[in-house]
């Protein structure tokens, strides 16, 4: 079962919820931090990261001896990542998406590909025995999606019963890449106009991908009732409420997981995991 924890708005407590859910699942869980631009889950799970792999995109390399400057590569590239100017063929790595068209279509066979490293994958086990992996986008590199794609393809040590994927904020391509193939979207929001606005965006993606969804309301009590009204209207179940508590905020700030600071929340997260399992099973039974 693959659960994605997403939010639309950043800072609503996605990582807090994802790591708490992973901790109650224990050894049956593999947790992936798909927020490759700002990965934070490891700060709360403390895994020993002993696996590492460089990832990136296949970048063209032009053999100047064979290139005739015919311009075919520049013509087929949709990203302006390869250009022929005068008697020179230039490759711009930061623009390349690694689609391979230039290499495939070069009439002289003058282009080959090599891996252009744009990030790394890191993985290991936590003290509780749950498997963790994350992707890290290299600073200055624009494209998060290839790192997320490779992270999800990275073979686990053992086949986990439950996968928990911590999504990046927002509602564009990196979130979609994270959600692809998920069985359930757990959407964490806060009861404010910003939280609601961004929740609607990510609900839209889950609907388009036909992934069943449920909501966690974090910092309950800080704003208004509009999130509740929206969820009721849309038939979105609110599966958990976490009230605004200063001790939780302070604990998280110090890098302690929610369950370390507030062990009294453990049963609530066990129930949440069970509720998600029930919903996914019901979905498959249909």
């Amino acid at each position: 079962m693959r659960i994605v924890v997403a939010s639309g708005k950043g800072g609503t407590g996605k990582t807090t919820v994802a790591t708490s859910l992973a901790l109650v699942g224990g050894e049956s869980v593999r947790c992936l931090d798909c927020d490759v631009e700002a990965p934070n889950a490891a700060l709360f799970l403390h895994p020993v990261l002993d696996r590492r792999q460089e990832v990136g995109i296949p970048l063209p390399r032009v053999d100047t001896a064979r290139c005739t400057h015919c311009g075919k590569c520049a013509e087929v590239c949709q990203y302006h990542a390869i250009a022929v100017l005068g008697q020179t063929t230039l490759v711009f790595p930061e623009l390349c998406h690694g689609c391979g068209s230039c290499t495939r279509l070069c009439p002289e066979g003058a282009i080959s590909e090599h891996l252009h490293v744009t990030g790394v994958l890191e993985g290991g086990l936590t003290a509780d025995g749950l498997e963790f992996a994350r992707g890290l986008l290299q600073v200055g590199e624009p494209m998060a999606v290839p790192i997320i794609r490779e992270l999800k393809r990275w073979p686990p040590r053992r086949r986990p019963a439950i996968e928990i994927w911590d999504a990046p904020p927002g509602a564009s391509c990196p979130v979609v890449e994270t959600l692809r193939g998920a069985d359930f979207a757990l959407l964490v929001t806060e009861p404010t106009p910003f939280g609601l606005h961004d929740l609607k965006q990510v609900v839209g993606i889950a609907r388009e991908l036909k992934i069943p969804a449920g909501v966690v309301v974090n910092r309950d009590g800080i704003g208004d009732q509009a999130v509740d009204a929206y969820c009721a209207d849309q038939g979105l179940p609110i599966l958990l409420r976490i009230p605004m508590e200063r001790r939780i905020a302070e604990g998280l700030a110090r890098g302690r997981s929610l369950l370390e600071t507030a062990p009294d929340y453990r049963p609530a997260f066990q129930d949440l995991l069970a509720a998600i399992q029930d919903r996914v099973n019901a979905e498959y039974a249909r």
Binding site: A74, H80, A81, A83, L85, L90, F92, E94, L95, P142
Partner: peptide, 13 residues
Amino acid sequence: AGGAGVQAAQCVA
């Protein structure tokens, strides 16, 4: 979206 310099240069050329 990106590669403005490349595109502009190709235009000027």
